[in-house]
Write a protein that binds this DNA or RNA. Structure first.
Lengths: 392, 392
DNA sequence: ACACCTAAGTAAACTGTTTCAACAGGTTGC
DNA sequence: GCAACCTGTTGAAACAGTTTACTTAGGTGT
C-alpha cells in the first residue's frame, strides 16, 4: 500500500528472558525481594506507568500470594479472606494493574465483544436509521461490559465465510444483524442457533432466527386509520424493498385497510422508492402522474417521505392542503422540515438496546428463542390534513 | 438488570481432561494414532464443523509435525519446505482450521483492532458527518486486516481512565479520535505518543498530537472569495464551537478575508449555531434581526446552513435572490434540498481512510509525526447568487 | 485421641498461538 | 577427515490469565 512499514505479525523480535523467573526466585527465597523493587514506591497513581506493564504474576509476587489468589480477588471469589482480598486489592490499585483481556478471553468463555453487522451500502454509517439502532446498541453494550465491533456484510465478507470466522477465531460472542433482507442467504447459517445472532428490526419466516422488531403492522394500521379518518380514499404508497419482511407487512396492511374501507387500490398507487430521498421523489412523481387525484402519500420511511415533500414543493403543490404526506421512522430530521412530517415513531434506540441485551443473554446460555416486538405510535405533525373536498 | 442469567465470567464449569494428552501419546508411539480418528474422514468442507473446534495442536498431530511447523506454515515462513507446507495446508483446509485470534494477539504484538472514539453526543452515530468518516475508516481498516471497535468518550469513560485502559488491557492497537475539541483534556494523555492516537478532522496546537484534517482555512477562503466576487460585502457567519481549532480557522479566515476586502464586520454578523439545524435557524434569525441588510450567510457546516435555509423559507425570503447561503461539509443531503446548497466539499471519507492507514503505521512502529491536510473545494449549487443590487 | 469437616490458599494444568534455541542430517571447503 | 555451514524441523518457553484438585491449619464431634 502507500507505506513501506512492515505490517506482518512476525515483526520485530521481542526479547524472551530464558526461564529467568525461577532463577531469580531461587537466588533469594520467595518473596524476599524488597517491596520498593518496582512501581510500589511511587505514591501517585501510576498514570502512564513506569514503562513496564504489570502482570498478575508481578502483583502476586509483591503481595506474596499465588497468581490464583490474585485471580480470585479480581473475580470476587468468596474463598478469599477479607484480609487477603484487601491486601491484594491495595497492591492492584497501587500498581495500576489491569488484567489483560486477551488472556482473560482466551482462558475464559467469553470475548465480551459483539459485532454489529451492517449492510454493504456505501453510506450505511451515514444513515440516521442505522445510527439510532447503533446508538442504542452501544449504550446498552457499554453498560453490560461489552465492546462493539463494526462489520459490513460485503459480498467478499460472506463469500469468505467471515461471518462464521469471527466466531471461530473468537473475535466476538454474537452478532447483531442490521438492515438485512431475504436475499441475505448467509443468515441461514445462524438458523440452528449454533452461534448467537439477532436480527434487528426485521424478521424472517423462512429461517428460524432470533429477532427484535418494531411493530410495523400496527404502525401502518395507525397511519391508514388516521388517513381514512381524514377522508382520504385515494392513498398512494411509496414502499421499498419487498425482500424485507417488515416492508411487506406495511404493504399488506395498506391493502387490507383500503379493502376494509371498501377501496380497491389502483395498480398505479404503489411505487418503489428504494428507501432514498431521490427514490421517494421519483415514486411520488410516478404515482401522481398515473393518478393525479391521489390525496395522500404514505411512505415506508422518512427519507422517502422527505423526497416526496421535496418533489411536491417543486411542483408547487400545497402540503397538506392539496395532498397529505406520512412518513415512517420519526428520524430527528423529520420534525425539522416544512411542513413538519407526520410519521410513525419507531423506537429504534430501544430496539437496538433490547436486541443487544438479548444477544448477550443468548451468548451466556439463554435457551429460549428471542422474538420481541416493540410498539410504535403515530406522530401527527403538519404534513397531513383533511382530504380535499371533505369538510372538517 | 432485566435478566437473571448469570453474566459473570466464572460461569459454568468446563471439563478439563487431566494430562490426557501425554498419556495417550505414551500408550502408542507419537503419531501412531490413525488418521481416520477425527474430522479428516469427512470429504465435504466442514461447514458448521463436527462440533469440536480444531486447534493448531490437532492439526499438528494429524499432520505428524510439530505445532511450530503448523504455525510457520500459517505465517508463510520460508524455512518450511514446499512438501511440508502443502501437506499441512491441505489438512488445514480439510479440517477447516482457523487460528484463534485471541491466542495470536496474546502471543504476538498486535491486536489488529482499532478504536473509533466518538464524542458523547446522544446522536453521534446518527450523524452524517461522523458517518462519512467512519465509513472511510471501516473500509480501509478492513482492507488492512483490522477490525474496528466503537467507543464513546462519555464523562465516565474518561474519568475511569478507560481511554488508557483499552490499551493496557490490550483491547486495541490505536485510537481514531473523532469530533474532539479543546475541552477534551484526556487527549493530552496521548501527547507523548506512548499509545497511538490520531485526531481526525481537527488538530491542536497545545498538545503534540497526530492528526489528519481537511483544509478548513482554504475551504473558507474559497467561500469568501466566491461571495466577495458575487458582490457580497455584508456577510454573516454562522459558526460553532470555538473550542474546535478548525472552527476558529474558519472564523479567522472569514475576518481576514473581509478585512482584505476593506470590510469591517459588525459584531452582530457572527453567531453560534451549535452545529445543529435548530441552532443554524436561530443564528440566521439573530444575525438578520441585528442587521437586515446582510446579503449572505456562511455556515460552518451543512446542518446549520440547512437550518438557515429553513428559517429563510419560513420568513418567505428568496434564496438566493434576496440572500445567499453557503454551507460546509457537502453531505449527501446538501445537494438534495431546495435550493440545492452551495457548500465546501470536505473529503471526509478520504480523511477517515487516511487516518486509519496512518494509525496502523504508527502502531507498527512508524516514528514520524502524522500531520496531513487534505484539500477541499467549493461546490457551487443553487443557494448562492450575485448580491442584491449588484448587476451581473 | 482420632476421624471428619471447613476455610483459605496454592501448584499446576489449561486456553492456543509465536518464536527461539537446539538439533539432526546433508553439503561444502580445505 | 573434519570443521563449518545450511536446511528443515522440533521442544519448550513465553504470552497472561482461569480453574481444578490438592494441601495445610484449625476447629468440632464423639
Amino acid at each position: 500500500m502507500t507505506s513501506d512499514i512492515e505490517l506482518t505479525r512476525s515483526a520485530g523480535r521481542r526479547p524472551r528472558r530464558a526461564a529467568a523467573r525461577s532463577h531469580s526466585a531461587a537466588a533469594s527465597g520467595p518473596g524476599t525481594i524488597p517491596l520498593a523493587d518496582s512501581a510500589v514506591a511511587t505514591a501517585a497513581p501510576p498514570v502512564g506507568g513506569d514503562g513496564k506493564k504489570v502482570s498478575m504474576r508481578e502483583v502476586a509476587r509483591l503481595a506474596k500470594v499465588s497468581v490464583a489468589t490474585v485471580s480470585m480477588v479480581l473475580n470476587d471469589n468468596p474463598r478469599i479472606s477479607r484480609a487477603t482480598h484487601m491486601k491484594v486489592q491495595r497492591l492492584i490499585d497501587r500498581l495500576g494493574y489491569r488484567p489483560n483481556r486477551l488472556a482473560q478471553s482466551l482462558s475464559g468463555r467469553y470475548t465480551q465483544v459483539l459485532a454489529v453487522m451492517l449492510p454493504a451500502l456505501r453510506h450505511a454509517f451515514a444513515d440516521a436509521y442505522f445510527g439510532e439502532l447503533i446508538s442504542g446498541i452501544c449504550d446498552r453494550a457499554g453498560k453490560m461490559g461489552y465492546k462493539v465491533m463494526l462489520e459490513q456484510a460485503k459480498p467478499d465478507f460472506v463469500k469468505d465465510r467471515q461471518h462464521i470466522e469471527i466466531f471461530e477465531r473468537r473475535y466476538v460472542d454474537g452478532i447483531l444483524a442490521l438492515g438485512c433482507n431475504d436475499r441475505h442467504a448467509w443468515l441461514k447459517d445462524f438458523a440452528d442457533a449454533k452461534y448467537p445472532l439477532i436480527v434487528v428490526d426485521n424478521y424472517f419466516n423462512q429461517w428460524n432466527l432470533d429477532h427484535v422488531v418494531c411493530d410495523y403492522r400496527s404502525g401502518a394500521e395507525q397511519v391508514m386509520n388516521y388517513l381514512l379518518q381524514l377522508g382520504h380514499r385515494r392513498i398512494g404508497l411509496i414502499n421499498a424493498a419487498q425482500e424485507i419482511r417488515t416492508s411487506r407487512d406495511v404493504l399488506e396492511t395498506y391493502r387490507a385497510k383500503l379493502a376494509g374501507a371498501g377501496v380497491t387500490p389502483a395498480a398505479g398507487w404503489v411505487e418503489d422508492g428504494k428507501f432514498t430521498e431521490e427514490g421517494g421523489a421519483r415514486a411520488a412523481e410516478m404515482i401522481l402522474e398515473r393518478d393525479p387525484s391521489v390525496t395522500a402519500l404514505f411512505a415506508g420511511n422518512d427519507k422517502m417521505a422527505l423526497g416526496a415533500l421535496h418533489y411536491l414543493d417543486r411542483r408547487n403543490m400545497d402540503v397538506p392542503r392539496q395532498i397529505s404526506v406520512v412518513g415512517f421512522d420519526d428520524l430527528r430530521h423529520a420534525a425539522f422540515v416544512t411542513p413538519a412530517l407526520t410519521t410513525v415513531h419507531l423506537p429504534l434506540y430501544e430496539v437496538g438496546a433490547l436486541a443487544c441485551e438479548r444477544l448477550i443473554e443468548r451468548a451466556h446460555g439463554r435457551a429460549e428463542k428471542v422474538a420481541e416486538k416493540l410498539p410504535t405510535h403515530l406522530m401527527v405533525r403538519e404534513s397531513t390534513a383533511m382530504a380535499a373536498g371533505v369538510s372538517g
